[in-house]
Amino acid sequence: MPIRLPLVAINPGNSGGALIDMDGDLIGVNSFILSRSGTSSGVGFAVPAATVRRVLETAVGGGRAVVRPWLGARTQSVTAEIARSLGLALPQGALIADVWSGGPAERAGLRQGDVVTSVDGRPVAEAASLTYAIGTHRPGESVRLGVRRGGASEQTLTLRAEAPPATPARDQQVIAGRNPFDGATVVNLSPAVADELGVDLFSGPGVLVTNIGRGYAMNAGLKPGDIVRAVNGRRIGSVRDLVGVVGAQLPAWQVTIERGGREITGTFRT
């Protein structure tokens, strides 16, 4: 996104105030300042105006949560090495590393290996700016994407903004009983849950741990963000699968979870 210079510095006490550029346009709402001295010497932060607008629209419309459209693709920033391999003049843009089947990106015509260079005519510096630009749209709106494919010149694709689907259903449950998951709150992993909790969308179906309360799970070392992959050799694809497995009274449990992209297997006695 283009850089727009603020008119004034963010000082302590300015939180909630308007941040405007040299043209007098609102570009954000001041939030806080990071300062070792306690004065205005530091780094100021503000909520972008586009984000504030979506929050206000949601509140005025009676909603309780802002629905952010998703791209339906895994992306990574274009590094200097990637730019050279793709024949790009500059290391900027978002590389499409994978595409979610049936998602907005696939329906728009995006393919693995494409580089998104702009959104609605504004340049995309890296992967995070692409996610942000898509998320500022309302569901149902059309988004113009500038895309480089192979050695061809840039083309324009149109993506329809839509919320990530909550499929499968969340089915949130708190596990109880003499098993390693006692006290853990778990949900089915879906695109909506992955977007909400910042989990890798492409990690595959599974059961996500969202909270650890009092119980054996805390002592077993389970953490929010863990994805349950298998219990006693049985693959776990849903909360129903997990509830069915832990209903048995067993002296020992072999559990495989995914944490930070790595699978970890441990044996527990209850």
Rank of each mutant, 00 (worst) to 15 (best):
G215W: 00
L90F: 13
A94C: 03
T256A: 09
D195C: 01
G198P: 00
P165Q: 15
N30H: 01
F268Q: 12
E106K: 14
I236W: 00
L159I: 00
G247C: 06
P6D: 06
L242H: 03
V78S: 02
N179M: 04
R122F: 13
M1W: 12
N232R: 11
A217E: 05
T58Q: 09
G204T: 03
G204M: 06
R234Q: 07
S15I: 05
W70T: 09
V209R: 02
A46H: 01
G13A: 11
R262F: 14
T210N: 04
R259N: 11
G62P: 02
V239H: 12
G61W: 05
I236L: 04
A217Y: 03
G260T: 10
A80W: 10
N179D: 14
S153D: 15
T131R: 15
T51P: 00
T79E: 04
R111D: 10
G113P: 01
V66R: 08
R36I: 14
G113R: 03
D25K: 14
Q254G: 15
A128L: 09
G24M: 06
R122T: 07
L19D: 02
S153L: 11
G38P: 01
S41P: 00
N30A: 09
L86P: 05
R36M: 10
V78T: 05
D25F: 01
G198V: 01
S101P: 02
S77W: 11
I27M: 13
L145S: 07
G146N: 02
V115C: 01
V66G: 06
V52K: 07
T270E: 12
E81Q: 15
V186E: 09
R229I: 08
T79I: 07
S238H: 07
G261I: 05
A46L: 00
G183T: 11
D241R: 01
A161D: 11
Q173Y: 12
F45V: 12
M22P: 05
L88Q: 10
G261D: 04
G44R: 04
W253Y: 11
A161Y: 05
V119C: 10
L71G: 00
A18S: 14
T39H: 06
A108Y: 00
V119K: 07
A152Y: 00
P224N: 03
V255I: 14
V239W: 10
A105F: 07
A252F: 14
P205R: 00
P48F: 02
V60E: 15
G102A: 02
R229V: 15
D21M: 08
Y132I: 10
T136K: 02
D98P: 04
R214T: 08
E258S: 13
V143Y: 11
A248L: 09
A152S: 06
A125P: 02
V115I: 10
V193K: 12
G221F: 01
A161R: 03
R160Q: 14
S31C: 04
V124H: 02
A161V: 09
Q249K: 15
R138I: 15
V243D: 14
N232E: 02
V255E: 06
R138H: 08
G93C: 05
T79G: 13
P123K: 12
V67W: 10
S118H: 01
N11R: 13
S77H: 08
F202E: 01
G140R: 04
